[in-house]
Design a protein around this nucleic acid. Sequence first.
RNA 1: GGAGAGAUGGCUGAGUGGUCGAAAGCGCUCGACUCGAAAUCGAGUGUACCUUACGGGUACCGUGGGUUCGAAUCCCACUCUCUCCGCCA
Length: 425
Amino acid sequence: MLDIKFVRNNPQAVKAALAKRGNTVSIEAFLSSDEERRKRLVDVEQLKNKRNVVSQEIGKLKQSGQPAEDLVLEMRNVSQQIKDMDEEIKQIEEKLEYMILTIPNMPNESVPVGTSDADNLEVRKWGEPRKFAFEPQAHWDIGEALDILDFERGSKVTGARFTFYKGLGARLERALINFMLDLHTGQHGYTEIFPPFMVHRDSMVGTGQLPKFEEDAFRVQNTEYFLIPTAEVPVTNLYRGEILEGAKLPIYHCAYSACFRAEAGAHGRDTRGLIRQHQFNKVELVKFALPENSYEELEALVANAEKVLQLLELPYRVVALCSGDLGFSSAKTYDLEVWLPAYNTYREISSCSNFEDYQARRANIRFRRDAKGKVEFVHTLNGSGLAIGRTVAAILENYQQQDGSVAIPKALQPYMGGLERIAKV
RNA sequence: GGAGAGAUGGCUGAGUGGUCGAAAGCGCUCGACUCGAAAUCGAGUGUACCUUACGGGUACCGUGGGUUCGAAUCCCACUCUCUCCGCCA
């Protein structure tokens, strides 16, 4: 969430920043409630002070055997008043909290201004889309033909947007997970985490999925547990409520997890194939950084994610999201988009964001530079490194052969038991 | 699932209705001593909010309620941890 004091002191700047997102939240409504709260707080705290002082007097009177009935009666009244005022303040605070939790982050200065993904800025391209001597097939057709993906039975057993991987398809998924984790832990300095796949409400609030986007999440019946939409949630919340040692920053974590998304509002989009599933696998990168370094850390994180695509020799481009396309909690986001021949376009395969102190403030993740220093909020970052299902789709489509088989990228072959291609059995 | 014990500051741990934001020790910071270090001695050392010139106030002893003039302390519910039994991958 935003710094309430900053909002109070710079309402115009906040409004201008949020306007770049096309956000219409009323800062005025927030500020008037905020003022109301403070006004009442002053009153009730005065009363509480009176109660504290007089209560001590009563104690002394009673100890010395003197009567204190009139004071007790008076304080009985005061206490009731305090109770009523506390109740009113609580109502206001609940309203305020909901408001501040539903105000998105402010875009960083460097974010291009725009209203939709059409205004996103291509930063760089890597690799050349392959020229096919034949009509390239979509990955769902390739996968079904090779009997390594089974969408029909996925729907039968669970429902739409669920898929069975079979044989070398399942092996490919597992190989990619291991390949990516090995790369990030071995070459990029990330410490591996294997997180819970369910978290409670506070964790979802901490990273920004709640309270605003509850309809996007799967909640476990009769509990307050949510299936994680990304490992970002449990891994960022690892240090929730903690004060970290400044000397230990930055902290790099990577984590494999399954991800669960309700995809509310995505009906009819990407209905075929692996692109948009209710359950998919992902290797996530998470960083906890010093505020002054977070933008360098973002560039490095993007480079770490790009490395996966480079090693797999998949053509991609890097896009800087414009202000209107930015995620709720993000101050700046780069998307990695991989080339998908059957779509004849680049599709998102990784999203790398700097949240600055927005999540840290929600999740109360702080650090102290040294023993004497004041506590400060860390900056949190994360990015996919990469989405596994979409990587499988990209490999199937980019590495397909005329005979229907699919070559396996060199870097991945050791993870496939040395296998060089997936062919029909 | 059954029975029991517990949750206090960075840590250990005292505190069963008032003067307790909280003893003591450890740790940490600063200072003294020292050529330097250790040891020793002295001072300091939570977070948030409100107000503000200095300063002051309020809240927080797992979480949420309740009793009371007054709650770390009493009552209720919940969460988590530990021990024993049962069950289980």
